[in-house]
Every structure is written in C-alpha cells, then in structure tokens.
Amino acid sequence: MTPSLHLLVNGVRREGAVPPTERLLDTLRWRLNLRGTKEGCRSGACGACTVLIDGRPRLSCLTLSHQVGEAPILTVEGLESDPVGRAVLETFVAEAALQCGYCTPGFVVALTGLLKEHPGATETTLLEGLQGNLCRCTGYSSIRRAVTRLSEPKR
C-alpha cells in the first residue's frame, strides 16, 4: 500500500503516493527530482543528506517522509530564496569552500539551520554545530574560513 502524502518543499506543495517506510532523502531525490540533497552514509554519520524541517537541521536519510507532516522542508535548492541561506551560499562561493562538492549541500543547509536557530552565533558554536558533517576531501580549512566570515558581525 502506498498512502498519499502532502509535503511542503521549498515553499511548493507537493503531493503523491509514497510507501510507508520511504526515507525523505529518497522522496526528495527520486520522486521530486531534487538531487541536490546527497546520500552519503545513509546511517546518520556524515550529514550529507541534511535538510531543514521547520527550520531545524534534520537527517533526511533517517526520517520517514510520512513523519514530516505539514512542516515546511527546505533543501539546498531552496536556499537561494532564503536570506540566511543566500548569505551562506555566497560566502561558500567567495571562500571556494568546496573541493568535490559532494558534502557541500549538507554543510550549507546545516549552517543555514544553525544561523537561523542562533542568530549572531559565535564561530565556536557554528563549528561545533558542524561536527556532524563530514568532508572526505578534508577541505575543512576553506569551510572554516567561510564559517569565520559568517560569524563576523555584519557592518
């Protein structure tokens, strides 16, 4: 049986039949064609699949689509239309904070969630908040530069 489901993704209401145990990660990538969200470990260790649900960072590989309910979902594809998300994207570009880019959607979405939850967060808070995200290119120094910039008070 595939019960029907309504999801609010990046401000757009989507509807369809989704099997009961399907992960949000798979619904986003394979039903809604939003392939920006990446599958890394599929076990909650790498953070590549991070999306925001109700503004909070969540692991889409460990979330059933049917558990989300009416809560708004923001994926990497929706970051540009969010002021905090846009600032994060621009800073990552300015600092070239990526190598292969596979972990990048997870990093920028997680950072957007942290900055929304803790406006004016310190560099330490942001770095601690990113401990759940892995970059296997170990491109951390450029990611750290972006975090430093995002934690500086805006003039």
Partner: peptide, 9 residues
Amino acid sequence: IGGVALRHQ
C-alpha cells in the same frame, strides 16, 4: 549525542 541534526530527531 550525535550531531545537531541527529539531536533534532
């Protein structure tokens, strides 16, 4: 426990 995203679940 875990990381921020995991703790939200």
